[in-house]
Every structure is written in structure tokens, then in C-alpha cells.
Design a protein around this nucleic acid. Structure first.
Lengths: 156, 156
DNA sequence: TATTGTTATACTCTATAACTATA
DNA sequence: TATAGTTATAGAGTATAACAATA
């Protein structure tokens, strides 16, 4: 690759980055399906598990705040937290001053469910990282995750 | 209970790997939604675009082979290639010796569509990688993608 | 019997649109 | 007007189950 090719229709990105983009696309799809498969038979779906995990890490939050954090529409998040509430895994409390808002928090049952989720759903990833990669490779993956997260969260 | 692991109930994985697993889960979901959003209004859906891309890179293939490669069920892949065929983006030819099989290949229209797909769908990733990361960081991401792909493809 | 592929059905995830209640 | 949330509807993506045709 010495000269630029001004007439190339798909140009703009150098081929190794285009290849990386294609790999990332494939990887994302496969991870999504593995995560979904791993979370089956657990009583909670993938997106429900994501909410449980987030509530545990960042504390109680409103539906809208959860939607922003996971980058889904508030209506989508509403369906997810609604299902969790029906199963008694989260509970809603009124906001102290703003009566429009409802604050969702984990119940004890939700916390127990989360323990199970972590073991089975995120567990295989953590295990694979630990068993299949040496320390340098683990460090590479960990740094790359932060870099990619930065890209994914950039602007819209 | 388990006396081999006296401490944490969710143990087994060191905390930094558990954290990496959680980050990977969040990243995967966000990338999936971004990819889907980027492929809207293109005439092909995300999984259809994946098939076009694969046919271009690896040549003609049967439904079952495509399903294995993308790690979906043959029935699911059947629906995807069926839609592509209806739009004239792929065509099916009989297998020379096995009349059960049908070999799918890109049409000229499919190839043109793919060019468009690459520009818009994988384009934003390639562009972000090029613009937001320096060369060392790009190398880290590229290596990590290969490592993660290895993990994702390991055993079932 | 095993493999390729199809048809039928259902669930998850997410979206847009239209609405109510509160600020 | 703006924000938090709900309800209704739809499409993408995938799965399982049952089946037909071919090897």
C-alpha cells in the first residue's frame, strides 16, 4: 500500500482498520449470542441481567437513568424493569420530591439472582480470560475494552 | 457448600477479570445497538449484511455452512438468506453432486449493496479507530480482537 | 440413519408513536 | 413547555419442533 487510491469507492479507512471493523462486527454478534445462550434457564433475560448488574454496581436509579446508561430508549427500559418488578427482583420507591420519578432498587431476591447470573453469564467470559490468555494478553484485552468502550460511547 | 473456595460466593474468577467480563457485556450490547442503528435505511438488516460480507470474503457457501460460521441455527440462517434472495442480492445454484444442497453466491446487485454497507455500517468503526486512537492503541485493539475472537469460538 | 433445508410458532430486544401525569 | 413514565404496535433476530427430500 504505497499510493492512495482516490477513486476507490469504499476508501477513507486503511484496510487494516476496515478489517478490524469487520472482525469487531463478527465478534459482537457471536458474543451477543453466547451471552444470550449463557443466560438462558436462569429466570432472567440478558437485558434484565444487565439492569440487575448495573443497580448493584451503581446503586438505585430511575428508568430514564438506566436507559441512558445502557443506551436504550426509555420505553425499552420500561419493559425491562417492569418484568423485573413483576418477578420481585427490583422494587420501586417514589422519588422524595419529584412525583413523576420512580427509583428502582434491588430486592434481596434480586441480589441472590444476581449472584447466580454472575456465576453463569459473565462467568464463562472471566473464566476464559483467565484460562486461555496469559497475563500479557489479559492486559491487552483489558486495555482494549476500555478503548473500545470509549469509542462506543463517543457522541450519538 | 463448597469448602474448596472458602471466601467469596461468586468467586473462582479474580475481580479484575470479573470486571473485564462485565465491561465486555456492556460493550457488546452497546456495539450491537450501534451497528444495528448504523445499518438502518440501507435496505439490508444487520444479519443480512453479515452474510453479504462473508460471501464476499470467503466465497459461495451453503446455508448450513453460513449458519455454522456465524454460529446461528440453520433455520435462522435460512430466513436470512431467503430474504437476501428475494431482494436479488444473492442467488442459489444447485450443488453439482448433492441435490440437497444449494450454494449461495453474491449477485452483482449484492456486491454493490455490500460496498454501501461497508461504507456506512463498518465505516464508523474504522473511522473511529483511525481518528480516536493512536497507533499503539490501534495495535492493542487489533490484537485484542483476535484474542477475543479465539475465546468466542472456543468450544460450544 | 444422517444431513440439508423448510415451515410454523414463539420469545427477546428494541424501536417509534401517542398518551398521561407532573414539574 | 419539558420531563418521567406508560401503552400499543411493529420489526429484527433467534430459537425449538416437526417435517420433507436426499445421501
Amino acid at each position: 500500500m504505497i499510493h492512495e487510491q482516490p477513486q476507490s469507492p469504499a476508501a477513507a479507512a486503511p484496510p487494516e482498520l476496515a478489517e478490524a471493523a469487520a472482525k469487531l462486527r463478527v465478534l459482537t454478534g457471536q458474543l451477543m449470542r453466547r451471552l444470550r445462550a449463557a443466560s438462558e434457564g436462569e429466570g432472567v433475560t440478558l437485558s434484565q441481567a444487565a439492569v440487575l448488574s448495573r443497580l448493584d454496581r451503581h446503586g438505585p436509579a430511575t428508568t430514564v437513568a438506566l436507559a441512558r446508561a445502557e443506551r436504550v430508549r426509555p420505553q425499552s427500559m420500561g419493559a425491562t424493569v417492569g418484568a423485573l418488578e413483576e418477578e420481585g427482583l427490583v422494587q420501586r420507591s417514589p422519588h422524595p420530591t419529584d412525583r413523576r420519578q420512580a427509583i428502582m432498587s434491588l430486592t434481596d431476591k434480586g441480589r441472590r439472582q444476581l449472584t447466580e447470573v454472575r456465576r453463569t453469564r459473565e462467568g464463562w467470559i472471566a473464566q476464559a480470560l483467565g484460562e486461555r490468555l496469559d497475563e500479557r494478553e489479559q492486559a491487552v484485552v483489558i486495555e482494549a475494552l476500555d478503548l473500545l468502550a470509549r469509542l462506543a460511547e463517543d457522541e450519538a
